[in-house]
Design a protein around this nucleic acid. Structure first.
Lengths: 193, 193
DNA sequence: AAAAAACATTGACATTTATCAACGACCTGT
DNA sequence: ACAGGTCGTTGATAAATGTCAATGTTTTTT
């Protein structure tokens, strides 16, 4: 259960976790199971936990005026699920996160994370994650304004092939910011080439 | 010159800077002037400095295959200019930043910032900035997929009225991810109501 | 096994936005 | 003062995407 998390943290760290730290990590991260279709986070709540996905798949989405869902993030193994803004600022979230498959996660609260800032590798990872998210979002934003849909889909397929395997096309379409019919047509056009 | 930066850092800090720390800050941030139209950062370079804008206005943009510019960020007083990804990872940037007005900035290098991680307020601010950027981009992404342009423009006008004053409309249009003609038409429609 | 739900595709059509071109207003540097 | 650039607007048209509806398939549930 914890091996994945340990090696994930070490991958981000300058100095790997020592035995003592590993013990602490095992202590402060609480395992949970989220069944398919169940919420991990709901609009209006404060995001109390960040969750490291050991096994499974989840999605984050918002719901607009007309009740339409807009997928903002997809998560599979080795990703973190949660709304960092809500988590850090303790403000109510405007997003929802639910499980797309039965999912095992390791959760940590803000209080416990702050408490163990003393573990440099953990701190470093957390820091780098923020940066990584900021970049990733910036790039998506840039792409959505400058690249044709066909290319954005191809990029996604290359970069995160897992997504295409594990989420249905209408979810992928929403993630790319287009109607499911549009994605369907772009795909059929592309495959004819 | 430094007052703006000091109070900016304090605004983010749990514990304000003490005198000693203020002295250090003044030491490690180097003031620079960037004249209108000059580059602060160019595609292909590593972003060596993050710059706190004391006075002036800048923009970050990318250039696509066809030579079109896409504005990703706009900066005025009290904002940070730079590509954090490049800055932190020491990788070449794909963005350009240039001055839209004559600009005074306070710059800091990655080495010096790391060196003074010991100043908690500085560290805290840097951390929170990452989060803030990630959120802001996430929200823009969400908005661009779920809100009509008219509303996105109205939101921008309300949230950052400065931008509309200080950048021409074709820059604002690019920032919103639409052609300048489209923004022009949306504006004229809106004003008729 | 049957029924229900979720999913993907296709067609017809409406809407939004991009593109290309032209024009005039307004800076701005010399 | 004027020449050149920047800026904003408008029109005509094309392209991309959204919406609505129908259909068949697959998957899930009972």
């Amino acid at each position: 259960m914890y091996e994945k998390l340990i090696s994930y943290i070490n991958a981000y760290a300058t100095k790997p976790l020592d035995e003592e730290e590993v013990k602490v990590i095992k202590d402060i991260f609480v395992p949970k199971k989220i069944r398919k279709k169940q919420y991990f986070l709901q609009e209006g709540e404060v995001c109390k936990y960040m969750g490291f996905i050991v096994k499974g798949a989840m999605r984050m989405y918002s719901v607009d005026d007309k009740g339409m869902e807009h997928v903002l993030s997809l998560y599979v193994e080795d990703w973190w699920a949660g709304d960092r803004e809500s988590f850090v600022m303790l403000t109510p979230t405007v997003y929802n996160i639910d499980a797309w498959e039965d999912t095992d996660i390791l959760t940590i609260t803000q209080a416990r994370l702050a408490e163990f800032n003393s573990i440099p590798a953990l701190h470093e990872m957390s820091r780098k994650l923020d940066e990584k998210h900021a970049f990733a979002n910036m790039k998506r934003l840039n792409a959505s304004n400058s690249l044709p849909l066909e290319q954005r889909y191809a990029d996604l397929a290359e970069r995160y092939p897992d997504f295409l395997q594990r989420f249905p096309q209408h979810i992928i379409a929403s993630y790319l910011g287009v109607a499911k019919e549009t994605l369907s047509r772009v795909r059929s056009q592309t495959s004819k080439k």
